[in-house]
Design a protein around this nucleic acid. Structure first.
Lengths: 328, 328
DNA sequence: GTGAAAGCGCTAACAA
DNA sequence: TTGTTAGCGCTTTCAC
């Protein structure tokens, strides 16, 4: 049996579809006992309003597109939960999109989300270059970027203060007496990597020092393992390692184990992000914790404002917090 | 500026909307150079077909609902990726829903997905009781359950063979000489837990032995830590621990560390699921590995068959594979 | 308080 | 080959 529609209820109740619509949407429309009868029938028929028809009429789909580079990276599920938490409170649902592969995928995705007439988009760690990114964003009623900025008219943004985070990481190692510091810098193309390096440079300059070596890598455990091996084999005297993220740091931990380097005795390692994994490895990983759930909530709230046409706040910066554990 | 529609293109090209529709959908409809002109204009106007209108007309939304109990549990993102991989190949998108909280949430979600007129649903680890579950599933054109079964007419299912997995875990520990075995059993209400226990019972019976103790807990790290502490403090002589999942096993690892119990020397620990984390802890966790990505792919393929009205295969059973690492 | 008409953007069926 | 008509389910507008 196919789904009940307004006219089915109307016929059963002996009224017009319009009346049913009004009653079910709580906008008066009928006397008390007629209303009751209509609601009763709707319930019996398991009536579910057709969101497609509603959306077509109202030009609102009730759906928000969420784009993440890789849902298997534990950084993102927390953000998604934050987004969903706020979205559901406001009657929105999430169309989740993963873009593991290429920037081409990002373009395709945009077309899809446009076709679905999503009411807005939250895009995490977009890798598309500026021009096409802006062009893509302009096709949406509202957009929020996480980990990226564009002109505030184009999209709101939630930024993580990588500079200060990286600076704090370096100061932390320095205060612990580490003087020969290497950097596992993550993906060379990434803005986040650049900003971290800038933060480091500033502190190094103040200190009259510099990094022993910097190695780029993919932002996962394996990338960290490979890069740290390369770095440590070439620079045995390194006594501190600053990593792009916790996954990289866990990879470094593995390398140290393989190379017989003791952490933190021989080498202090610090990560970034504060994913749960950081607490489960041994030694427990010191890290710069980022409140991912809040980022999701903030992002969705910002999107809601934009959907409603308010542009009060254009950019939010979240500051990572140093958590010193046993790896430093 | 709002979005271009067929009639906009039609006007610009001096043809009827119908012709434009046919051309853009590649169903002939016009001579070669008219077709070219239409495509050109569509491109310039950044035309995006309105999926809402199409869906309303065709009674197909192109969207598949995916429900997981908790996206922050690393078991699920892999499944989602598998689902998405197949879905995209076939022109479907995912409406992702998390149900962290209560079974009530599950009911609400069903209403939402029905309203969105999703073409099908993939539901992971549904916790709703049989009656309402069946009722909910019946409202969809197609449905597939992961980790649960119902009548094949109602929904397809992908099952993990927890019995054989648990049996393998026990045999593994037994072969290693462990004789006093405790069980961290996960959520008491869960089917998965029950089935694992059944698998264990069978093997214990063959062996003429039984579990020293069984403790239930939440399926996360903390639950495992608490439950294992309770178990180990009450039964100091236990030399083998079978855990509901890897998260629980990691929790047990933490407890052992706190209690000064050496793993695997004093106690062998084995997990379940084979999440990435299992490789990152020390000692590396032995586990029963489940191919989550494949499960996602299989589930989506099964759903596609059901959407298309083929019901060739009603149930797939995936067998976990023992991976012996350093915790046993 | 209630209903009829019209239209959101698209396409199946038929007509020219 | 191309166009016209009608309708998917809902809601806004206006008339009763």
């Amino acid at each position: 049996m196919s789904k009940a529609k307004l006219s089915d209820i109307a016929r059963a109740a002996g009224v017009s579809p319009m009346t049913v619509s009004r009653v079910l949407n709580g906008r008066g429309g009928a006397g008390p006992e007629t209303s009751e009868r209509i609601k009763q029938i709707a319930h019996e028929l398991r009536y579910r309003p057709n969101a497609l028809a509603r959306g077509l009429k109202s030009d609102k789909s009730g759906i928000v597109g969420v784009i993440v580079p890789d849902i298997a990276n534990p950084f993102f599920p927390e953000i998604i939960r934050g987004i969903e938490n706020v979205a559901l409170q406001h009657g929105y649902n999430l169309l989740l999109c993963n873009v593991v592969e290429s920037p081409d995928r990002e373009i395709d995705l945009m077309r899809i989300l446009e076709s679905q007439r999503v009411d807005g988009v939250i895009w995490c760690s977009a890798r598309l270059s500026e021009k096409p990114l802006v062009k893509a964003l302009q096709s949406f009623k509202a957009a929020v970027l996480v980990n990226r900025t564009v002109e505030p008219q184009i999209a709101g943004s939630i930024m993580i203060d990588y500079r200060s985070g990286a600076a704090d990481a370096l100061k932390h190692l320095w205060n612990l007496g580490r003087r020969r510091i290497g950097v596992i810098a993550g993906p060379a193309a990434s803005r986040g990597s650049m900003e971290r390096l800038e933060g480091l440079r500033t502190v190094f300059a103040d200190l009259g020092a510099e990094a022993v070596a910097t190695v780029y890598c993919t932002p996962d455990v394996n990338g960290g393992a490979l890069a740290s091996r390369e770095l440590l084999e070439a620079h045995g005297q390194v006594d501190g390692l600053i990593c792009y993220n916790d996954l990289n740091a866990v990879g470094a931990l593995q390398t140290c184990e393989a190379l017989g380097i003791r952490v933190p005795d021989d080498l202090g390692i610090i990560g970034f992000d504060g994913i749960p994994l950081a607490e489960f490895v041994r030694p427990k990983l010191s890290t710069l914790h980022v409140d991912k759930y809040s980022i999701g909530q903030l992002g969705m709230r910002m999107l809601l404002e934009r959907i409603e046409g308010k542009f009060v706040q254009h950019s939010i910066v979240v500051r990572p917090q140093l958590i010193a554990r046993n790896s430093t």
